[in-house]
């Protein structure tokens, strides 16, 4: 695992985390009290697919996929997967910073357990 690959993985992870954050940002902007009933759901989805943050998020997926292909060309998959758990830390921070989510103690403990679990499963 060279430094170059590590940086590439980090860029791919940041692209992916930005995509998730942008999606959530776009969906938060849609003011729908309850999505009940099919008509309401269709209206919600129409707002989702025309939301600028969501569309920006889709661009992020494409960028992330491109960078990830470079990673796979250089690194063993078994090495790349445990690194995927960095994502959970980035998302915890971006949810707090950009989405104003309240991160309490249980959520941090839970996410830490999950990261530990993923590393063990990927070993």
């Amino acid at each position: 695992m060279t430094l170059k690959i590590l940086i590439l993985v980090l860029i791919a992870e940041i692209c992916n985390a930005s995509m998730h954050t942008l999606f959530k940002r776009g969906i938060n902007d849609i003011d729908i009290e309850h999505i009940r009933g099919f008509r309401n759901y269709l209206h919600f989805m129409k707002r989702v697919v025309t939301s600028p943050p969501v569309l920006l998020g889709l661009l992020m997926i494409i960028a992330g996929m491109g960078v990830w292909q470079l990673v796979l060309a250089h690194a063993e998959l078994s090495m790349a997967f445990p690194l995927d758990s960095i994502q959970y830390i980035i998302i915890l921070f971006s949810s707090y910073l950009f989405l104003g989510e309240r991160i309490n103690r249980d959520r941090i403990i839970g996410t830490a357990f999950i990261i530990g679990g993923i590393v063990l499963v990927a070993l």
Partner: peptide, 17 residues
Amino acid sequence: WGGIVLIIIGIWFVSRS
């Protein structure tokens, strides 16, 4: 198996949050 158990505990904490 250990990893699976940790993930389940983690999800329990997240849902508790």
